[in-house]
Design a protein around this nucleic acid. Structure first.
Length: 477
RNA sequence: GGCAGGGUAGCUCAGUUGGUCAGUAGCACCACAUUCAUAACGUGGAGGUCAUGGGUCCGAAUCCCAUCCCUGCUACCA
């Protein structure tokens, strides 16, 4: 049954180059979007960039650029991922779009009107040594680790606060109503524990004179929205909210029947599954239906960091091994919701065993036999296997692909056991028909994960007369 | 410290409510076989006292207690 499917990634903050962690997120999302498209759903797949805030303002200043110019440059880099990773999103939405800015302001008005925004005092922590504002998490024992001899100054600033503390019970209601709201389940427990504890209101504005690069607070130009507030609204402004009410209802859903799916990293759990939901509830808008939370990618057992020099650049891998090789690795060998390790050695091992010797070799050997047989193989309609659907409905990309690879192994065993290359006439054609059918099925099942590979195989195998092609995953020289 | 989730073959992991649950698992490794295929594929083999110590039970990787180790969260980090 066809339906509307809304899917969004988080919006990466444009202060550095695209990271393999975001590649993971958007490739997972892309697999979901392609899956739903294959099922006949109407898919709205959104991604984009988050471009406001102090860090970006400072970075732009440092590099001598206008903030917008700086954002344009980075937005382009993220936009380039579409081709590099073969992404099927239809909406690339930037938080500096005028339409988004208007939407963020409308969101503010709604939340304010409902009584969930109030002025309060925000105590900014300022390190005189760094001449910078610090966050609690930056401090060690209440001191700046770079200037432990200097005291942190507290600068009281009048800000607007979001009355988060008033929304806990509404959030719990939502979690109760949808036990699978957060996937995996232990993340839902985690956020639930957090929400059940005493919630504190949080600041959602900054003084414009100190930080001009943000969305002006409606009716009070002395304040800019703190990036969070603006950035979260992007999930609905991308749908044309508040102007396009039909499209919003169609894809985002209604309060009775929420429909939106989000993916985010575990570092975003609180923002997406609690704060954003609280904002929606406060504004009287439907909450998100489900949020899939993915893990992090480590490199060599350690967090990626520039100083360790172990940062994985997804584009390097695309260039060297191809888009689908990277997509395969991230979907099949990275635990969808847990942390996983990524090293070049492991990647090459997988490339060789699974893609070269597994899928690539099977497709070649069967094509070679089919070509020699001179027979033709009528195309039959294939639809996505049930196992794949079941796995994808639970965001288990790795399980889905391991199922496909089990079938590749079976097909190889079949060829060897029957010694298909020695068979003649009907016996041979029967065996080949089986194999061709299985490979066509595999191609369909790979469509959400490795679209280009799936298409190559389909083209090669759907033409009745099958002939051998160049290797899809060539040996590494 | 508190809460949550983990510690199973060299590596990555499966193991539903305790009774072929110790895995024909994948990768790597060794041997054999084979040539249709990208020197690929297939078969066989070696590898684990299921973190440690107790306990419950006829029986525990699976439940309970203790200990050790790892990870996440413990709020204003986009």
């Amino acid at each position: 049954m066809s339906k509307n499917y809304y899917l969004t990634t988080t919006s990466p903050y444009v202060n550095s180059d695209p990271h393999v962690g975001f590649a993971l997120e958007i490739i997972q999302a892309d697999a979901l979007a392609r899956y739903h498209k294959l099922m006949g759903d109407k898919v709205f797949f959104n991604t984009g960039t988050d471009e406001h805030g102090k860090k970006i303002f400072e970075k732009a200043m440092e590099s001598g650029m206008e903030p917008q110019e700086y954002c344009d440059m980075y937005a382009a880099k993220f936009g380039d991922l579409k081709k590099a990773l073969n992404l099927s999103y239809n909406s690339f939405w930037r938080s500096t779009e005028p339409k988004h800015i208007e939407a963020a302001q409308e969101m503010w008005r709604l939340v304010e009107k409902a009584g969930y925004i109030e002025k309060g005092i925000y105590n900014a922590k300022y390190c005189v040594g760094c001449e910078m504002e610090k966050q609690d998490s930056d401090l060690v024992d209440g001191k700046c680790p770079l200037h432990p001899n200097k005291d942190i100054e507290i600068i009281a600033e009048e800000n607007y606060f979001f009355k988060f503390s008033k929304l806990g019970s509404k959030l719990i209601e939502h979690y109760d109503k949808y036990p699978d709201f957060v996937v995996p389940a232990h993340r839902q427990k985690e956020i639930r524990n957090f929400v059940e504890s005493d919630l504190t209101d949080f600041s959602i504005s900054r003084l414009t004179e100190k930080m001009p690069w943000g969305v002006p607070v409606p009716g009070d130009p002395k304040h800019c929205m703190y990036v969070w507030f603006d950035a979260l609204t992007y999930y609905i402004s991308s749908l044309g909210w508040p102007d396009d009410t039909d499209k919003f209802r169609e894809f985002w859903g209604t309060t009775e029947s929420p429909n939106a799916i989000q993916v985010c990293g575990k570092d975003n759990l609180r923002q997406q599954t609690a704060m954003w939901q609280a904002m929606l509830i406060a504004a009287g808008l439907p909450p998100t239906r489900q949020i899939h939370v993915h893990g992090f990618i480590n490199s060599g057992g350690q967090k990626m960091s520039k100083s360790l020099g172990n940062v994985v650049n997804p584009l390097e891998y695309v260039e060297k091994y191809g888009t689908d090789a990277l997509r395969y690795y991230l979907l099949a060998k990275v635990a969808p919701a847990e942390d996983s390790d990524f090293t070049k050695e492991k990647f090459e091992e997988v490339y060789k065993s699974d893609l070269q010797n597994g899928l690539g070799n099977l497709v070649s050997r069967v094509a070679a036999m089919a070509e020699k047989s001179d027979s033709s193989f009528e195309a039959v309609d294939h639809t996505l296997s049930t196992e794949i659907k079941v796995a994808l409905d639970e965001y288990k990309f790795d399980v889905a692909l391991s199922d496909v690879w089990a079938r590749i192994k079976k097909a190889d065993q079949f060829v060897s056991e029957k010694r298909v290359w020695e068979l003649k006439d009907k016996e041979r054609d029967d065996a080949l028909t089986c194999l061709v059918r299985e490979i066509r099925q595999i191609a369909i099942d790979l469509t959400p994960f490795m679209p280009e590979t799936a298409e190559k195989i389909s083209k090669q195998y759907d033409s009745g007369q099958i002939s051998k092609n160049e290797p899809m995953f060539p040996r590494l020289s």
